[in-house]
Simulated scan of single mutants.
Amino acid sequence: MTDTGSLLAKVVGPEHMLMEDRVPEEYGHDESLAVAARRPRYVVRPAATAEVSEILAVAAMRRVPVTARGSGTGLCGACVPGADGIVVSFERMNHVVEIDADNHVAVVQPGVTLAELDDHAAEFGLCYPVRPGEPSASVGGTIATNAGGMHAVRHGVTRHHVLGVEAVLASGAIVRSGGKYVKTSTGYDLTQLLVGSEGTLALVTEAVLRLKPRAGHGATVLAPFATAEEIARAVPRLLARGLDPLALEYVDMLTMAAMTAQQDLGLGIPQQVRDTALAYLVVVLEERSADRLEADVESLGGQLLELGAADVYLLPAAAARQLIEARERAFWASKAAGADEIVVPRASLPRLLAAA
């Protein structure tokens, strides 16, 4: 009987089937520090959906566990494989099949990175708004984990932008769900069932994604507060008044100090304010019109002062970019230190912070 490795090599070609000692260490882990790495027995790198179908048929026949892998940037150990299993790496399935500017959708393979998709969409004045903090993350990985990020406050998480998928079931059967339309009310929503399923139901081999018009103007506002509880109370009140920010981020005093020191980042905050501020609120606004953005910034500043901010600072573009990048890295550093994510309703934040 032909062994499993030979069957897999026949599907993808010997150069794209790695086995045992030939498997590089990187295929055994993602960026999680809490899940131990495990080297799989096989790594296969398919180039087409038909090959993924054949791989899963072989795995089903031989009863070998399968783990899908994108860029390996996740923090939860989702792509750590079984020691005797197969890793299906989508690094070769990395093509933007289509940018449909009329329907505001992109059709992409799972190995396309968020940065690559954004570059293609930008040529048409569009963007894919999901920003989990790592532009090298693959589209397939973000679909598998239903990734969110800073922009979720305005644009939601990944599932809000996946209109359709092509996927391969464990048997090797190929299925399609959804498409280039935003309204469907017939039958089960297989697309949304697969988003966030981490490869346990099927492997996504193509996705139809909703794109948004690209905003041409942006501003970042920083507001220091005397306490974290004041920020927690301010956020739902800001949103209730019609504020539609791209991002709303809380930064505590110690994290802000570490971020600014590490980046040598000057934000123009006087020392007397820094001495009394225990927390900061970062608000990112985006608009297609410069006049509308200016009006929004002015309105936001007044509301923040009314809600208890010590002052309001409109950051220069370079400083704003550095601050957001530092904030994203601070999240990764916190995870590395063992911090857990907690999800609560906005109105419960004051009580949560008071108990912390």
Rank of each mutant, 00 (worst) to 15 (best):
S89V: 09
R321I: 02
I269S: 04
M17L: 12
A202H: 13
L352H: 08
V139G: 07
M61R: 15
L209H: 09
T260G: 06
G85V: 11
M253I: 09
S53Q: 07
Y250R: 08
G242K: 05
N146E: 01
N94E: 08
E25Q: 15
A48E: 06
D100L: 06
A219W: 06
A219V: 06
V66N: 08
L307H: 10
L243K: 05
E294V: 02
P316I: 15
V35K: 11
P213G: 11
V168E: 12
R210W: 03
A68Y: 03
L352Y: 13
R237I: 04
V88F: 07
P132R: 06
E287A: 15
V88E: 03
A310N: 12
V273H: 03
T158C: 02
G187N: 07
T113M: 04
S289R: 12
L163N: 10
Y280R: 12
K180M: 04
A223C: 05
L248E: 05
K212A: 07
I269L: 15
G72T: 08
Q263E: 15
L117D: 00
S136P: 10
V343K: 09
D3S: 05
T255D: 14
P46A: 00
T276I: 08
M93W: 05
A354V: 10
I86K: 06
L307E: 12
V282S: 02
A279D: 00
P132F: 09
S348F: 12
V182M: 13
S197Q: 12
I143D: 11
G28H: 04
A170F: 08
T145G: 06
A68V: 03
D340E: 13
A207H: 04
V235N: 04
F225E: 03
L194S: 08
R176P: 00
L304D: 06
A317Y: 07
E198W: 03
E249F: 11
D244Y: 01
T200W: 01
A258Y: 11
P46N: 13
L8A: 00
G172S: 09
G28A: 00
F90R: 00
A320D: 03
A47W: 08
E31L: 12
S6Q: 15
V195N: 02
Q322L: 01
A101L: 04
A261H: 14
F331Q: 14
L211Q: 01
T2S: 10
L246N: 03
V23E: 07
L222H: 05
V157M: 08
V344I: 13
L222C: 02
C127T: 14
E249Q: 13
V162P: 07
A78S: 15
A48N: 01
G301P: 09
A326R: 12
A122S: 14
K212V: 15
G125V: 11
P213V: 14
L265D: 01
R38F: 00
A78I: 11
G187T: 04
V80W: 01
